[in-house]
């Protein structure tokens, strides 16, 4: 099924969870925040949260930057 992850379309396995998608993308869940269709999903819910075709996922982390 197709999802939009960080603004880009991506195919993932039918019925995949957030945890599975992060694993497939080789992303350490301890270093990110995840927004599913604009709702922030707590880390402890990644394994139970099943995704559906058309879902919009935002995977956020800390990057270099900031004022001063």
């Amino acid at each position: 099924m197709e999802l939009t992850i960080n603004g880009k379309r991506r195919d993932v396995q039918q019925g995949a969870t957030i945890a599975a998608v992060l694993d497939e993308l080789r992303i350490d869940p301890l270093r990110v925040a995840v927004q599913l269709n604009l709702e922030i999903i707590k880390r402890e819910r990644y394994a139970q949260t099943t995704l559906h075709a058309g879902d919009r996922l935002e995977i956020i982390t800390f990057m270099a930057g900031g004022s001063g």
């Binding site: 991506r10 990110v32 935002e58 995977i59 956020i60 900031g66 001063g68």
Partner: peptide
Amino acid sequence: TVAVRRVNL
């Protein structure tokens, strides 16, 4: 201080 951005996929 760090910025908050999308993960680079």
